[in-house]
């Protein structure tokens, strides 16, 4: 019985590729179906959020290190891309920079903060995030608090942005799955549950946390970079705000923390809903998020993905 487990699981793994592949094809063909620019923009933003959500999920979901400081990576990615594009660098190359600089920054943040555990780590990340925002507000080369306008000397084509963001989100999904089903991912899961026990079995928790922090920062930074190029104007109170950190953390929690599809779902729901909420309830949209968060944590800690899974199983099993 034990040996028979292997053959179907490999088949199952192939089958698991079919659905995401199909989804990717559909999303790639969507712009040819005559979508309104507004809808394409909405999908673009959604892909950006999905990427950031997946990035946070690597550290928060897979490894159990709750960070309130991902706006640092998002903002650094945005500013890196902005400065590079402004100096005439190819935008796609600039997205690489938008991944690398935040990854580098993640070591400086992680080296001291990963010596802290649980809530102390979370609190420290708030401090780092706020400090970065204040510095960026006063930094001359980025225009400080008044923001930075990106002048790109090439025609604006919305579908380019769409496909860039789609490819990036697909990359984030692929990276997440590869990590989840690897030795690296097993080490992270072990750290999430019991750091001491993991170390007793040969896992180096500190090194592993630093490594996944860098991957998470790279994905989040890239999301920031892709967003910056589209937005063409960024400012510290936007990309570096505490609100951005909270948004990035909220998505995987809403969708289903620790699972890849949960983080995707959270990003999709957030991307689709956020603007509507801001537009229709400008005064209380944060209140609505807060309520949603409390509701999910109380009623369904596994998020929307967990809820859907339960519904699915109930429909499958006949009473």
């Amino acid at each position: 019985m034990t040996t028979a487990v292997f053959a179907p699981s490999r088949l199952e793994a192939r089958a698991r590729l079919v659905l995401p592949g199909l989804l990717l094809v559909v999303l790639a063909l969507l712009p040819t179906a005559g979508l309104t620019p507004n809808l394409i923009r909405l999908l673009f933003i959604t892909f950006v959020w999905v990427t950031a959500s997946l990035g946070w999920n690597l550290l928060g979901g897979f490894t159990g290190q709750v960070s309130f400081g991902f706006a640092v990576f998002y903002g650094l990615g945005a500013y890196t891309a902005a400065l590079m594009i402004d100096r005439g660098v190819n935008p796609y190359l600039s997205f690489l920079g938008a991944a690398l600089i935040p990854a580098l920054a993640s070591f400086f943040i992680g080296l001291p903060t990963f010596r802290l555990r649980g809530p102390y780590f979370a609190i420290a990340t708030i401090g780092v995030s706020e400090a970065t925002r204040v510095i960026m507000n006063n930094l001359a080369i980025t225009g400080g608090a008044s923001g930075f306008r990106i002048v790109e000397h090439r025609p604006f084509r919305q579908v380019d942005h769409y496909y860039t963001a789609l490819a990036m989100a697909a990359l984030a999904v692929a990276v997440s799955f590869l990590i989840q089903h690897s030795k690296f991912g097993m080490g992270l899961r072990a750290i999430k549950q019991d750091e001491e026990a993991a170390a007793d079995l040969g896992v180096n928790p500190y090194a592993y946390k630093l490594a996944i922090h860098a991957v998470a920062a790279a994905l989040t930074g890239m999301a920031g970079g892709v967003f910056a190029r589209y937005a063409a104007f960024i400012y510290p109170q936007g990309v570096f705000s505490f609100q951005t950190s909270v948004y990035i953390l909220l998505m995987p929690v809403i969708g289903g923390i620790g699972t890849v599809w949960g983080a995707v779902l959270g990003g999709v729901v957030f991307g689709m809903v956020e603007e509507q909420l801001v537009a229709n309830f400008p005064q209380i949209h944060l209140l609505l998020y807060g309520s949603l968060l409390i509701l999910i944590i109380l009623a369904e800690p596994d998020g929307l993905a967990g809820l859907l899974g339960k519904l699915f199983r109930r429909l499958r099993t006949p009473r």
């Binding site: 030795k183 097993m186 080490g187 899961r189 993991a198 079995l201 040969g202």
Partner: peptide
């Protein structure tokens, strides 16, 4: 005892196999 409670028994030992000698 400090097992990884949310992992199966097999996965618990798998971690050790990965990261051991």
């Amino acid at each position: 005892v400090c097992p990884f409670r949310a992992m199966t028994v097999l996965e618990n030992v798998q971690v050790a196999a990965h990261f051991g000698r």
